[in-house]
Amino acid sequence: MGAAGGSAVLAAALLGAALGAAVTDEPAHTLAEVLFCQPGAPSLGLALAFDADQLFWFDFPMSRWTPRLPDLPPWPPALETPSQLLRDATFCQNLRRSLTALATGEMPESKGVPVAAVFPQHPPVLGEPNTLVCLVENIFPPAVDISWRLDGVPVTRGATHTHYTPTADLAFVRFSYLPVTPAAGDVYSCVVTREGDNSSIIAYWVPQDPVAAEELETALCGAAMALGLLLGLLGVAMMVVTQRGKQG
């Protein structure tokens, strides 16, 4: 939690539980529910995550829980109803305003430098449809804009973004997806812009032309045959030399 002129104070509530560590030697897991509020967009956010995987997020404009994946079961209606969460959100905003008034000019603003990486969802093959994934980590506060470019030209068609997922180090993670059909010479870039100071981090991905499996198999078979032939000739030559040595 930090302040700098009251521009980016963030209030967050974290409920976590370490599971399994006290019983077994397996690594502990964390179930976290994080509610945040801030002056910038999004002004409110709420997510339930297991370790680094988001399970549910709360859509405040629509006042409903939404599963991160379509095959997850729906949120139990009696558990943390929308009216309860709206009261929590109001309390969070009031607390943020109070802390802003107290901390402005007294505490430095806490900020994380986002780290981005781009990779294909499936092994890339030139000319075949695929999906690029932009993973953005170390987000704090949760206010970044993610955009895509192809050869420097903005691309928006089909691009989707996930909501912010809390992490154990009190930062956030966000994903962005872009359907692509890679071609030789393409240069894709994921641009992450922090709201407020407009600083950007750019991650690039350039498709490579992998060797087709059949071509690779043919090349390996040819190399094996050539090696076998070479070893055969070497054996014959050694037999000839040995025979001549005996005759001498």
Results as ranks from 00 to 15, higher is better:
V34K: 04
L86E: 11
L135M: 13
A171F: 08
V180A: 00
T156M: 06
T242E: 11
M225A: 15
I202Y: 02
D71Q: 00
A203S: 12
V155S: 00
V236L: 11
G40Q: 09
W205T: 10
L178K: 06
H161L: 14
P114C: 08
P124W: 03
A32E: 15
A41G: 04
E215P: 04
N138F: 10
T218W: 15
L19Y: 06
A49Q: 07
D145Y: 15
W57I: 02
D51W: 08
A219V: 09
K246L: 15
L220S: 15
G152I: 09
E128D: 12
A49I: 05
T81W: 03
G2E: 04
L216H: 15
M1Q: 06
G45R: 01
P108R: 05
V144C: 07
A171N: 15
P82T: 03
R64V: 00
D151K: 07
A171V: 11
K246E: 15
G248A: 15
M238F: 09
L150C: 05
G6N: 02
T181R: 13
S176F: 01
V191T: 06
V118C: 03
V211Y: 09
A22I: 12
P207C: 05
E106G: 04
A4T: 14
G127V: 12
L19G: 04
L85D: 04
R149E: 08
A171E: 11
R96H: 09
